[in-house]
Simulated assay, not measured.
Amino acid sequence: MTWSPVTMRWPEQATQWMGQLSAAQHLAGGELASTAKRLADLNGKTTTNPGPVGAAAQGAIVAGRAALANQMGEAPACLVVTPFQSGVGQGRGYQRFLSAPNLLQHLAGKLVDVSDTGRPDTQQHALCLLFLATRFDQLADGLARFNALLPMPDLVRTERRARHLSKLETEKWEIPTAGTLPRWQALPLERCTVVKAAKQSMAGQLAVLESYAADSSPLGNLAALASRKAAQQQGRDQQLTDLKALLAGGNPDSSMRARLVGPGNATELRRALLKGDPPGHEWVLCAGALLVGSEQGLSFVRELVGL
Rank of each mutant, 00 (worst) to 15 (best):
S99D: 15
T7A: 10
V305W: 03
L32Y: 08
W283V: 02
A258S: 13
D215Y: 07
F300G: 06
P5Y: 08
R65S: 12
L107M: 12
S4A: 11
L103N: 02
A23T: 15
Q232K: 10
L269D: 04
A60W: 09
A224K: 12
K45C: 05
L149R: 14
A67D: 12
K37D: 10
E282L: 07
L298R: 04
V112Q: 08
L111V: 05
F146L: 15
S294D: 13
M1Y: 03
A198T: 09
Q123W: 06
L111P: 00
A148L: 10
Q20Y: 03
L291N: 00
A57D: 09
P263I: 04
G91E: 03
Q238R: 13
M72I: 02
A258M: 10
P278F: 08
L129P: 01
L139G: 02
Q95E: 12
V88A: 05
A75S: 11
L107C: 06
A178D: 04
P52F: 03
L127N: 02
N251T: 14
P153H: 05
G91K: 03
L189M: 09
F136H: 13
D154Y: 03
L127H: 10
P151V: 00
L42M: 13
F300Q: 09
G262C: 08
A214I: 00
A24D: 15
V292K: 08
A231H: 08
T117F: 04
R183Y: 06
G87E: 01
L150K: 08
T2V: 09
V80F: 02
L285S: 08
A75F: 07
D116A: 11
P252H: 06
G179L: 11
G109V: 06
E303A: 10
A23K: 10
W184I: 00
L273P: 03
V62M: 15
G204L: 05
H125C: 11
P263G: 07
V284C: 07
Q138S: 10
P153L: 03
L219I: 07
K229W: 06
W173M: 04
E268F: 03
W3A: 12
T180D: 13
L240G: 01
G87F: 00
G249V: 01
M18C: 05
D121T: 13
E190W: 06
A67R: 15
Q58I: 00
V292P: 02
G91F: 04
S115Q: 13
F136W: 12
I175D: 01
N265K: 09
G288I: 05
S294T: 15
D41H: 13
L79I: 07
F97Q: 14
E210I: 00
A213Y: 05
V81R: 01
R38N: 06
L103P: 01
G235W: 12
G220A: 14
L143V: 01
W283A: 15
E12K: 10
V261Y: 05
A248F: 06
R65M: 11
W17A: 13
R183V: 08
D253I: 03
L274N: 06
L209I: 04
A140P: 01
L298S: 08
L27G: 14
